[in-house]
Nucleic acid binder design. Sequence first.
DNA 1: CACCTGGTGC
Length: 497
Amino acid sequence: MNRGLFSVLNERQKFANFLRFCSKSLLLDQGMQVHGALVKMGFGFDLMLSNDLIVMYGKCGRLGVACDVFDRMLERNVVSWTALMCGHIQNGNPLESLLLFSKMALSGVKPNDFTFSTNLKACGLLNGLYIGRQVHDTCVKTGFDTVNVVGNSIIDMYSKCGRINEAASMFEVLPVRNLISWNAMIAGYTVAGFCKKALVLFRKMQEGEEFLDEFTFTSTLKACSDLGAIKEGNQIHAFLITGGFLYSVNTAIACALIDLYVKCGELFMARRVFSHIEEKHVISWTALILGYAQEGNLEESMDLFRQLRESSIQVDGFILSSMMGVFADFALVQQGKQMHAFAIKVPFGVDISKLKKEAGCSWVEIAKEIHFFYGGDDMHPLTEKIHEILKEMERRMKEELGYVYRVKYALHDVEEESKMENLRVHSEKLAIGLALVCGGLEEERKVIRVFKNLRVCGDCHEFIKGLSKILKIAFVVRDANRFHRFEDGLCSCGDYW
DNA sequence: CACCTGGTGC
């Protein structure tokens, strides 16, 4: 090879490397300068360099220029097509990516594993189960479904299309599972609401040889948050600290942690994590601000929102509309307080959600296990003891506080004498009963934490107020709308919810 | 050469 040709090839490789660096670091200006230089030097029609240009322009948000480069090419290979498809997806147009896929097929260029995973991503983004299945089918026929990256994309495609079972069976048959396969499956379970399954998978992952990364933790923390599994979440928090995963600099982990503590009614811990973040993302602000609002602490919520507005952080439409909701609630509460006299006559607090089709369900975490209860549920092996302790609590409350049931909250289609029984077996009460029987008190916090899928019933609300008084412990009840923190006979919601 | 995975809420 003569020196001249060698230096030309060397030059070409230097351009390519620099372009890839520009793509990675989103350096549009520098990328454009390289583009100009290589056109001048006669590299304008070079296949590899043109591909790199498409990638660079796509990543930097200049899809029009990427398309121009693509259109002017004398020949295009699978990389050119795939790079442009990715560009469309990255710029928010997955449909165009799918159209390109069919154009590519017509042009006679054969797709590879990268093309398939890109297309599966587009299907997932579009919620396109039908076309996703077709792509999956083609992958099977061409043998690409056994390629790890493609398999991962199939898992993600099915879970994005709401087909968690199909995602799971893909995960099962994957010949090689890597970190991303596990992460995709855990995220899939979490998004689909199968948080317990997500946690089971996470534990399996910990037991195995697999590494864990920030994606694993964010998804798993989200699962803990949705479940209210604070013990498990705490362990992950501790693991993050000992494992050197600094959430002070990792936005996603910090947000997930704040969300966990907020959803468990631990605003103090949420605030602590928040204060440790170096660059506070608008999402972490949102989580904390709404957390305070949902706990009934409107003052702190408003104050934080004011701080956010005074900071240099750009607020988004999401937090603005959320704050509208907070202001609306605040106004309602103010009105509600003025209307207190009426509230006694008006069936205030009648639980409209008990009329809904959805069955009331409560749960509580005891020794890292989540126990679920439905209203009138006697499936739990400790049911008898639960009833005993609840009766005991009623007796003490009557004696010490003169508490009697407000029977009006009971279901209406039952015999009068059995209304007391109905009230006793509301799911939130059963969950609390179990916590009392099993010592579900979180010793370090002196709190019992219960979750309910519907609004907490007015009678149970009174009952828990009483419990917090006579037992001298706090209760945190997260219902469908908000938090109730009961302490010393009072609730943070001020009885308006 | 490129491709896959994550966070706030209603």
